[in-house]
């Protein structure tokens, strides 16, 4: 069965490794490239925990074989921090608002809401809920996550 050399740009750095065609992108990121920030929940496209940004758009990394991403640009939750390792305004707002409990869904939630704010810096509550509609959280009840995104949007707008 086919084995492939796969090269990705992950958070701005070119990284490569070898994998069987059947290895999913999330397993490749975690097990081959050692980028363990992205979480694996359901492994079949239901929970959104594995969300990453591919070529600027949020996708589920368990619903792609790594070989299909060869040559593409990926941003994971590790890529959201500031230049000196500080939390991004969105990450900071998650912390401020207690938008996580166990933290399992958090990388996916951050990726989904980060891409939302890039496209739409001032989303209303319905737009935020729509953006996280594909991400399950079993702890928070979502309310604090929505509030965190609202706070992040406000802070970024005030700063600019």
């Amino acid at each position: 069965m086919s084995e492939h050399k796969i090269t990705l740009t992950v958070n701005g750095r070119e990284m490569s490794g070898h994998a069987e065609a059947r290895l999913t992108l999330v397993d490749f990121l975690r097990d081959v490239l050692g980028q363990t920030g992205t979480h694996i929940g359901c492994e079949h496209g239901v929970c959104g925990a594995c969300s990453v940004v591919m070529d600027g758009k949020p996708v589920r990394s368990c619903l792609m074989f790594a070989v299909m991403a060869d040559g593409h640009e990926i941003t994971t939750v590790e890529g959201l921090e500031g230049p000196n390792g500080e939390l991004s305004p969105l990450q900071d707002a998650f912390w401020e608002n207690h938008a996580m409990q166990c933290g399992y869904c958090t990388p996916g939630m951050l990726i989904a809401t980060h891409t939302l704010l890039q496209e739409n810096p001032d989303p209303d509550e319905a737009e935020i809920r729509e953006a996280i509609g594909g991400n399950l959280c079993r702890c928070t009840g979502y309310q604090q996550i929505v509030e965190a995104v609202q706070m992040a949007a406000k802070k970024v707008q005030e700063a600019s």
């Binding site: 069965m1 086919s2 492939h4 069987e20 065609a21 059947r22 999913t24 359901c42 492994e43 079949h44 074989f65 070989v67 299909m68 060869d70």
Partner: peptide, 11 residues
Amino acid sequence: MKAANFDYVRV
């Protein structure tokens, strides 16, 4: 929940 092996080609 891992796929069985297969061959892959990009066209």
